[in-house]
Structure formats: structure tokens, C-alpha cells
Write a protein that binds this DNA or RNA. Structure first.
Lengths: 206, 206
DNA sequence: ACGCTTAAGCAACATCTGTCGTTTTACTAT
DNA sequence: ATAGTAAAACGACAGATGTTGCTTAAGCGT
């Protein structure tokens, strides 16, 4: 039975999971995710196959953990916290752009891989939501909309927008779309009855 | 090689896919998706197992087709088109609410099913995006944001919001959240430089 | 009605999966 | 240091997967 991922004291567990995750990382540089078997993973990780199932229910769970961890780390590296204010939200959007383009160019062709992309999506939106919630937990729900609802909606909107951008062929650089996406997402965040958002904030550029 | 799904002339193909999809439907009333094997599906569909792979790469692809088709049908039943205006957007949100609660109560316990939910999400956002695009294709991109970007962002925001609502334990009835979600999503849609959206439209209820 | 085309049925295959029980080894607390 | 705890290795299992080559039969155009 897989134990929650962060509160791991035992170094053996940490080691094994690390091995499995980096093994998957390595393999995905050559094969597409769907072509990789649990056998492949445990083999290159030098871990017994049965041990794999002590940690993850299947390879999809491993992928989810890998992506969630990587993205979480990226956010922390950039010291992104309390994501409500425009600058923080912009930083989150930029990070998502970087992460997606990076894993897109990762050799793992993102053709029609039935279950691959949807899983990544879930991992990323969850991480974004977490950061946004930090910045919303002290906001009064003046609009009748719960902070959870706002955080979830905003996180999905961000991921959707970035995904749309990342799959555009002749896409502009990330720094250029970030303000555009921000323009779409800010109204959502400002629906939280925060201290200074009672006016409409039209953003009207151009 | 699975052929695109709607342009099917041959009645044999239509028949087989129908059998497979309704077989999955039936089985999901008792077992969770992860517990269902391709064997189970083909068995209850009275279709040869090898034939399954002539139509879908795996059971996840079948699920995706099933969900996409069902949701699409729901939208068409309600005659939802050109989803940009508030009333149409509200109808889309309500439909999503209904669809999610329905499939949630479907006996398929939505515990930690690694790849199940994420896949459903992809199918639904795609369908929502399609409807939204119909209403945006004639909107001038005055804000520098492409209609595709707006449609994608809005569709993800909608799905995220509805999902958050549907997993809330003591949730209000659907009719009650629709206007709230609408309030979050409308600003996105109105970022398209449509004919009559230059004013802020604050919606300010309560 | 007839023949061409193509889907579906069928059997068999190597491989992968998920699980179990047992043994061995590594960490933790005292 | 040592005993107790828990993870990892190992071998083996029934079952599911995805693919292949071949045969049967249903749909389509003439």
C-alpha cells in the first residue's frame, strides 16, 4: 500500500522511489510512455518488480508522482507562494509554460497517447491549485464563491490556456503570452472578495 | 487502426462499437473501471477480443470515446449551440453539472482510480471547447487573444469549477452554482472582442 | 445475382501484469 | 550492540494483454 509521498522517513523508501522515478525519466527520453512497461522501469532501476507495487499501483501512478514532484520543485525553486497577486500569478503561468515546453521537447512525442497527457494535466492543476489556495485562504468569500472553487477554476483555466499555447505551432515566446493569459485569469482570482478588488479592473490594454 | 469515430458508413463497424460501448456502460454499473478487463468487455459485448483492438487501442480509448459521445449527445439534446452568450454558457455549465453528477452516481466509485478521471476530463473539455468555438469563430480578436485560446481557457475553467462543485460533500443544487460559475467564466468569454462587450458587465449579484 | 472488399471470428503466441509467501537485508529505537 | 521492525529480493502463479495469420461472413457496387 503506497504511503503518502512526502512524509517519508525511511531512507530505503526514498531511495527506491527515487530510483523508480529517475528510471522512468530516463526511459521516456527514448520511448513514449505507453511503450514503457513496469518491467522496463524496474529493470533499469535495478529494483525488483514486485517492489514496484509496494510503492505505486501502476505505471500511471508513478508518472503522476513524477510529474507532480517535478512541477512542485520547479515552483519552489522560483520561490512562488501566495499566488493571488498579479505578479505571483504571472510567475505561476510562466512556470507552467516552461514546464510544459520542457517536457514536450523531452523526446516523448505527445502524439495520441491515450492516458498520458490527461494524467499530467491532473498532476499540474493540483499543484497550481495548492499554490493558489495559499493566497486565498485569508480572503473573505464576499462573492458567495468559496476560495476552493476559485482556486480550482483558476488553476484549470491556467493550465488550459498554457496547454493551448504550447501546442500552437508558431507560438510566441512565453514572456509574451503570460500577460495575455493573466488578463484572462485575473478576473477569476479577483472574484475572491479580497481587500482591494471591489472595482472592475478592466485591464483594457491595446 | 481505429478510424475517426463519426464518419462511419459501414453498419458492421457501427454495430460493433455500439456493442463495446454499451458493454462498458453496463459493466461500470457494478465494477469500477480499473477492475474491468478488455476480456470482460468483449465477453459481455459478444465480440471477439481481437476485434476490440481493431477499434480501440485499449480500454482507456474506449472510455474516452464513450464519455465524449455521451456528453456530446447531451449537449445536442439540449440544442446548445454558439455558447458565447451568457444564456448558452449557463446551459453548458448546467449540462456539465448534470453529466458529472450522473456519472458520479453511476456506481463507479470515484476513489483513487489512477487514470479514470483524468481521461474523462479530457473528453469533456474537448466537447465544451467545440461548442464554445462555434460561438467565437466570428468574433474579432481585438484583445490580442485568439478565439482558440479563449475557448480552451473557458472550457477548462468550466470543467474545473464544475468538478470542484461535484466533489463537494454538502453541495447546493446545480441551478444554484451555475450563476456563480458563470460569473467566473464570463469575463474570459468577453475577452473576445465581440460586438457588445466593451463594458465590464459586473454581474454584481447578492 | 455476383464478385470484390473489408470487417469479424478464431486460435495461438510471447509477453506483461498484479499478487503471494518466503527469505534476506537494512534501518530504528533502546 | 542488539533485538525488533519493516522494506527489498526472489520465485512462482494465474490471468490479461496486444499481436499475428488465417478463415468466415457480411455489406457494397455493378
Amino acid at each position: 500500500m503506497p504511503i503518502s509521498d512526502c512524509e517519508v522517513r525511511d531512507p530505503r523508501i526514498k531511495r527506491t522511489r527515487q530510483l523508480l522515478q529517475s528510471a522512468l525519466r530516463t526511459l521516456m527520453q527514448n520511448k513514449s510512455f505507453e511503450e514503457i512497461s513496469v518491467q522496463d522501469i524496474t529493470e533499469t532501476a535495478t529494483v525488483n518488480r514486485a517492489t514496484f507495487y509496494d510503492h505505486y499501483t501502476d505505471k500511471y501512478a508513478l508518472l503522476e508522482a513524477l510529474v507532480a514532484g517535478s512541477f512542485q520543485m520547479l515552483l519552489e525553486e522560483r520561490a512562488i507562494r501566495y499566488g493571488t497577486c498579479p505578479s505571483a500569478a504571472g510567475a505561476i503561468i510562466l512556470a507552467t509554460c516552461d514546464f510544459l515546453t520542457q517536457s514536450h521537447s523531452n523526446g516523448a512525442d505527445c502524439q495520441r497517447q491515450s492516458a498520458f497527457e490527461p494524467l499530467v494535466e491532473a498532476a499540474i492543476t493540483t499543484a497550481i491549485r495548492r499554490v493558489l489556495m495559499e493566497g486565498l485562504k485569508d480572503a473573505s468569500p464576499s462573492s458567495g464563491i468559496s476560495p476552493e472553487m476559485i482556486a480550482t477554476t483558476a488553476s484549470w483555466a491556467i493550465y488550459g490556456a498554457v496547454k493551448e499555447w504550447s501546442k500552437t505551432s508558431g507560438r510566441p515566446p512565453a514572456e509574451e503570452v503570460v500577460p495575455l493569459i493573466l488578463q484572462l485569469v485575473l478576473p477569476i482570482l479577483q472574484s475572491a472578495g479580497s481587500v482591494e478588488s471591489q472595482h472592475a479592473t478592466p485591464v483594457a490594454q491595446s
